[in-house]
Write a protein that binds this DNA or RNA. Structure first.
Lengths: 224, 224
DNA sequence: TTCAAATAATAGTATTACTATCATAAATAA
DNA sequence: TTATTTATGATAGTAATACTATTATTTGAA
């Protein structure tokens, strides 16, 4: 028996569940590939359809528009990260060790996880770095939020906030610090690779430097 | 004699200098208004032209495309912030006071500055919060960077990094911390207003809470 | 075997992101 | 002053994007 990790997705994100058919899985797979290779702006349903070998109309039966598709794959990623977090911090009692695990999990470039057939997590991680914030930096963020599009992200942020409070129950900004860690793990990675003078990691191009920076930032501010 | 603040812009950003004509100034003014009101995605040169009372072709004579126009107004903003920083920290010898001023300058909602006729800085600040990162989160960030499109942002980041080093010459990540401050001043503001559960400021909707959070973060990590 | 659901094939529309052309008005130089 | 450059206005046109609609064909479950 083959174990497959299934991540439960918000049904408002799709018209037809892409997990339930070959075409659907191909849509996810090729979307990740294309967005990774050319960026979200250059990504169109027409190109996607061509890459899969179906028609534009075929894609539109699964997703209303490309923004919802982006939110879908991003939500999937956060769900997957949440699973990794639970898995990796399970049985660890020392909260500071947990928090370090979290920082590493969020900062480190990911390897493809074979338990999820049609999703390449390494590419997805790169997409999150470059396109992640475009999920919510829109004019319709309020509407999207009401439909719970950002729940996986918020859940993760809450989970990280909980760990921060375990480290220091008196710390006043656990959620803001959690969202800072999550966002900066990605943004400092982007800067390191594309605008290195905005960081102090220029030479190494190594995520371990980002991890050190974030650990120092976090543990000094919560004072443990 | 009326004093007018002029910010020197990178000529690669435009085809014709918008500061040199009424139409040009109107393009800047109405762009800020429209992007502020409807977001960058919904912003088109056609709508802009209609709002000004000119034609699409008229706008294209000034800017090659809407991305360059966005980078233009964002660069203008960073230039203006740099001026404000120099002005406000001039004659302050104590670096920690300087750094606090910087955090406040970046976090606080801005008032319109009357010395710049056609630019509404308050709206521009809001644009930076929602659209700022879209200037560089593109597939062509490398090309844009080579053309120095992000120089004002980098200069600011350097200046903030310098102040951080004045506070603690041994601190290892002045640039990363500077870019973290700049980005988080905006992002925590966005979260506070649109995704409040990602922050700890939900009730107040007051930037002074963000300032406190950032000050604690920064001064604990540089240990002064 | 039949019937519903999914998909493929094709067409069509409104909008976007441009480029090109030509006429006219305003500024400037000879 | 006239001649000439330069900016703007008016209009057209194109390729691509972001969809919607229709019909035919295939697949698969009862």
């Amino acid at each position: 028996m083959k174990l497959e990790l299934q991540i439960k997705m918000n049904p408002s994100l799709y018209l037809r569940d892409p997990e339930q058919s070959e075409l659907g899985k191909n849509i996810i797979k090729h979307s990740i590939q294309l967005i990774h290779d050319n960026g979200f702006e250059a990504f169109t349903f027409k190109k996607l359809a061509e890459s899969i070998g179906t028609t534009e109309a075929g894609v539109y039966r699964y997703f209303e528009n490309k923004h919802k598709l982006l939110v879908y794959i991003i939500s999937w990623y956060w769900g997957w990260i949440q699973f990794q977090l639970n898995y990796q911090t399970n049985n660890i009692s020392e909260p500071t060790i947990k928090l370090k695990k979290v920082i590493t999990l969020l900062s480190k470039n990911v390897e493809d996880d074979i338990t999820t057939g049609h999703v390449d997590e390494a590419q997805l991680h790169q997409i999150l770095i470059s396109e992640g914030s475009k999920a919510y930096l829109t004019n319709h963020v309020g509407k999207d939020n009401k439909q719970q599009f950002f729940k996986p992200y918020k859940d993760l942020c809450n989970a990280v906030g909980e760990i921060i409070l375990e480290c220091n129950p008196k710390y006043k900004y656990p959620h803001s610090l959690a969202s800072t860690i999550i966002e900066m793990a990605h943004l400092q990675n982007f800067f390191m690779n594309h605008l290195p003078s905005l960081t102090d990691f220029s030479k190494s191009k190594d995520e371990s430097e980002i991890i050190k920076y974030l650990e120092e930032l976090v543990f000094n501010t919560i004072r443990v």
